[in-house]
């Protein structure tokens, strides 16, 4: 058991702790948007840490694992962004604690602008 393997195992353990916290947030949070936020943030970090720790344990897998990390880093936030946006579009109810809804403000602003016909503002 070398030192680098122990470090890798510890990093993998930290990643799995983040994954557990993410699933806890999935149960604990009040509405869909906060659940998506908790799940995505924690699971992205957890997955990255787990893969990196595995790469430290098996050093010859490191190249492929870094490509995997980049892939997770690209796809995970984009997909949950699209999920939250679609949920907002079909008017999934927000929790009562929510105070601000910027996307709704922006959309109403846009429609009111469109009614006032101002072609210069299109950009």
């Amino acid at each position: 058991m070398e030192t680098i393997e122990i470090i890798g195992a510890l990093i993998t353990l930290a990643g799995s702790i983040f994954l557990v916290l993410g699933s806890l947030g999935l149960v604990r949070m009040p509405d869909l948007y906060t659940r998506i936020q908790a799940g995505t943030k924690a699971s992205t970090l957890g997955t990255i840490l787990t893969l990196f720790g595995l790469g430290l344990i098996h050093l010859d897998w490191m190249g492929k694992l870094i490509i995997l990390i980049l892939f997770v880093l690209l796809t995970n936030p984009i997909s949950s962004h699209i999920l939250a946006r679609s949920a907002h579009y079909i008017k999934t109810p927000v929790s009562k604690l929510t105070k601000v809804d910027k996307l709704k403000d922006k959309e109403t602003e846009k429609t009111s602008e469109a009614n006032h016909t101002n072609p210069e503002d299109e950009l």
Partner: peptide, 18 residues
Amino acid sequence: KRRVSEILTTGARILVPG
């Protein structure tokens, strides 16, 4: 329909060739 999110189009430009 509604406009496609800009984050998705930018991400897709990277992800589709990959």
